[in-house]
Design a binder for these strands. Sequence first.
DNA 1: GAAATTTGTCCATTGATATAGACAATTATA
DNA 2: TATAATTGTCTATATCAATGGACAAATTTC
Lengths: 244, 244
Amino acid sequence: MANSLERRSGVSLWRQIADQILQSIAVGDFAENAALPPEVALAERYGVNRHTVRSAIAALVQDGVLRAEQGRGTFVLSRKRLSYPIGARTRFSEGLQGQASERRSVLLESAVEPASRRVAEGLGLARGSTVIRLETRGEADGQPVSRATGWFDAARFAGIDAAMAETGSVTASFRRFGIGDYLRQSTVLSARHADAADLADLDLQPGAIVLVTVAVNVTPDGQPIQFAETRFPAERVELKISAL
Amino acid sequence: MANSLERRSGVSLWRQIADQILQSIAVGDFAENAALPPEVALAERYGVNRHTVRSAIAALVQDGVLRAEQGRGTFVLSRKRLSYPIGARTRFSEGLQGQASERRSVLLESAVEPASRRVAEGLGLARGSTVIRLETRGEADGQPVSRATGWFDAARFAGIDAAMAETGSVTASFRRFGIGDYLRQSTVLSARHADAADLADLDLQPGAIVLVTVAVNVTPDGQPIQFAETRFPAERVELKISAL
DNA sequence: GAAATTTGTCCATTGATATAGACAATTATA
DNA sequence: TATAATTGTCTATATCAATGGACAAATTTC
């Protein structure tokens, strides 16, 4: 199971090693609060120079995942990844219950704009219809765990931006428009490297991976009410697809 | 929407640009069969030297995504990503119907071994029970699109390796053991950089990203019968979480 | 207190990455 | 046919990434 590395790949060895250490922590190979194997041992395991391992560790220390103590060793700080549920009734705040003591959704920005083709199709609107775009960030225990862009039909949901700003909850905002329940119709999932915006929004180190979901929420009778793209930091979040 | 880049990130600029070009193709910003913007324009857009863009393009040409023609331009070859459905009745071959003319599942390796803690928990077996492990690769139109490791209770499914080798289908193999229908109980999703094994198995370029699902299949009355980890190349596959 | 273990800091060298500029080769266009 | 646009190749230089070695500093162990 000792995953090997790829040279001249465009991804530096120290970053690949940092990724593998993160993976080992997530899987449980490196236990929380325990010491990592010493640098020389890791260097041998990965078949690289000790300095290269040190670069990987330095990045993870910078990232708050590890703590190095001279003479003693290097220790695992990080908690496990959050498991974010995806199902018919996916809601941000409920999903993380029990996994994080404090969680909230912050409205970063809102705008009114014409719908792109993609958004119009998702919401079942005519191309060029006016939509409201909301940019939000989800946080759990003060750490960003999601970054969403949501679109709503401006004709039907005028003022939803204010409602979101006030309540901080999509569910609560929908309630003001007479929508007591809604369902997730579809979710399409992909993954890519974080771009500069992701890095800033999610407080990630360069080179990180983000999970991307594109989803449509509908009323119980099937009317699309929200089209959303959400980015999750793969190192902090996994998605649990629950029975729908 | 011009995503910027991160320097000294451990991920080289040419690879970040290659990723973004792939993304642009997938999203439809760069249409199929159309010419990419010229190298100088791309260099300006990304704020890098023309040679850096050329490195990115060279990698994608090598990868069969682009074709460069001197004097004419650089053209998009690649088809869209496959959309792989995940739902209660996820089956490999059915899911890709209509998206690929030829699809199959190849048995790479099988083994009988004691269950790890993770596998035993997933299958509801005692720690150390004997399980059969099957390593398979899914292919669509000759290109690898998935790489799965599946575990089965050896006591109940003795000989399933032979059945898989013969039929090439999990569904057909289950039928031989009297299981006409089965459901997906849970799916946990994450993403990471491809390791050396992924690169070889999925025919990827170093630095690629893989989507990872960990799933449990159960009989209609809820008995776990299969525990599986599947890796998908994120550049070729997206996962569509479907309603049931 | 001495020895062993482990992280931290130097120096030097090599190869990959990125920038810069110039010009050749090929194709499309006026 | 000349000109422009575009990809291909070459040289040179600076920085990052990775290796190798030596030794210092802090901690634990004997």
